[in-house]
Each structure stands twice: as structure tokens, then as C-alpha cells.
């Protein structure tokens, strides 16, 4: 019997491609929202076809853009904060984990269309300047300030602009939530880790006033995040 040729397996997509898909998925999502009033004028079958096409693009983009993360990769990212700059692989893993967490929080109901660039984030982390400080909370605060002050998270080209204050607040809240999660005691399973990330976001949102006050000073922010992580 002739041996069947091996079925090629899909390998994990490379960084820039995942960023491109993030842009496609985000644009598809916004396109549907923008064209919603016009869609009402279309005949039913055309409207349904349009919606299916947009959903297909959005869904495919979302499925492919997120590199799978594991307990080990979450723990490795947590160690980068506790031990300072890790090796190149650990920093690349951390970029994947932060991007995953950003997408997870956005899908969990955060009403914004801000996109994270894993490629730019990996570059920032590799430069070493993002992780200044001698303790894990100090490094986390340094990372929040560095990413928030960069173009790592923002609106992809072609997206309608909204108030920059709203974007800034969403970026700050998302980043602080992710850092609080990474600073906290680790969970036993990935399911628990995802729940923990949701709880970190809920806690940071509930402590919104204190978080805004802490964001003005890096030392204050480090102390605030350390306290939140201890109570997560």
C-alpha cells in the first residue's frame, strides 16, 4: 500500500503575521459597527452575506492571532518581573503572554478597539529599558510606564479616532491589571489563571480612584500594584 503523504501541520504564526491578523480582526469588528446603519438599507440576503463575511474575517483573525500560552509561559513571565531581565526567550515569551492577556481582557468585555503589537512589545522588552528597578513591583511599574508611553498599544491605521483620554485610561487600566496578575501568586491551571486575570481586572477597576492616583508616580504605582497583587 502506498504511504499517504504526511499532512502538513500548521505551525505557530510568526510575530509580524500575528500583528497583521490583529489589525484585520480589529478592523473587521469596527467595520461592522460603522456600517450597521447602512446595512439596514440592504436587502436581507445581501445584509446577511455581508455580516457572515465580516464575521468570518474577524473570527479567523482572532483564532490565528493569539499564540497559545501555557502555565509555564505565565510562570516564566512572572519570573522576568521577579528576577529582572531574563534571556531573549523569556522576554519573547513575556511579550506573547502580555499580548494574550490584553486580547483576553478585551474579549471579556472591555469596550475598546485598541490593538497591541506583539512585535513592538517584544522589541521594547528585548531592549531592556522597560524593566528598570530592583524589585518585581518596581519593574512592573517601569513596564507600565514604558508601554503606555510608547506606540505598542493603539488604534490601527484607518480606525476612527476617539477621545485620547478614554484610550489612555483603557491602556492604563489594562496594563496595570496584567501586571497585578503577573505579580500575584500563581494558580494551578490555565483555567484558574484566566479567571485570576479577570479578577485582577475587576480589582483594578474597583480600585480605579486609587489606581489613577498612583499612576502619577512610578514608586506609588509599584506600591499600589504590590498591594493589589497581595490581595488577588
Amino acid at each position: 500500500m502506498r504511504e499517504q503523504p504526511p499532512i502538513p501541520r500548521l505551525t505557530a504564526l510568526q510575530l509580524p503575521l500575528r500583528d497583521a491578523l490583529r489589525g484585520v480582526a480589529t478592523l473587521a469588528e469596527v467595520t461592522e459597527e460603522l456600517l450597521e446603519p447602512a446595512a439596514a438599507l440592504l436587502p436581507g440576503t445581501v445584509r446577511d452575506g455581508f455580516r457572515s463575511a465580516v464575521h468570518a474575517i474577524e473570527g479567523a483573525g482572532k483564532r490565528l492571532m493569539t499564540a497559545p500560552i501555557t502555565l509555564d509561559s505565565v510562570r516564566a513571565s512572572s519570573r522576568v518581573l521577579s528576577q529582572g531581565a531574563g534571556d531573549r526567550d523569556a522576554l519573547a515569551t513575556m511579550a506573547v503572554v502580555i499580548a494574550y492577556a490584553w486580547e483576553h481582557l478585551r474579549d471579556a468585555g472591555h469596550e475598546h478597539h485598541l490593538m497591541i503589537s506583539e512585535t513592538m512589545l517584544a522589541g521594547h522588552l528585548a531592549s531592556g529599558s522597560s524593566l528598570a528597578g530592583s524589585t518585581a513591583p518596581e519593574r512592573a511599574a517601569s513596564l507600565v510606564a514604558d508601554i503606555a508611553g510608547s506606540a505598542v498599544i493603539g488604534r490601527p491605521p484607518g480606525m476612527p479616532a476617539v477621545g485620547s483620554d478614554a484610550d489612555r485610561a483603557a491602556i492604563d487600566t489594562g496594563l496595570v491589571s496584567i501586571m497585578v496578575w503577573l505579580l500575584a501568586m500563581r494558580a494551578e491551571t490555565m483555567e484558574e489563571e484566566e479567571k485570576l486575570l479577570d479578577l485582577a481586572s475587576a480589582l483594578v477597576t474597583a480600585m480605579g480612584e486609587e489606581t489613577r492616583a498612583a499612576l502619577v508616580d512610578r514608586a506609588l504605582l509599584a506600591g499600589h500594584m504590590e498591594s493589589l497583587a497581595a490581595h488577588l
Binding site: D198, L199, A202, L203, T205, A206, M207, H231
Partner: peptide
């Protein structure tokens, strides 16, 4: 409501 439950915890803390 889990959002409110988190807010309860934060206020209690």
C-alpha cells in the same frame, strides 16, 4: 454579579 462582588471586596478591604 461578579463585577459588583469584586467591588464589594475592594471596598471591604
Amino acid at each position: 454579579d461578579h463585577g459588583r462582588l469584586a467591588a464589594v471586596f475592594a471596598q471591604w478591604l
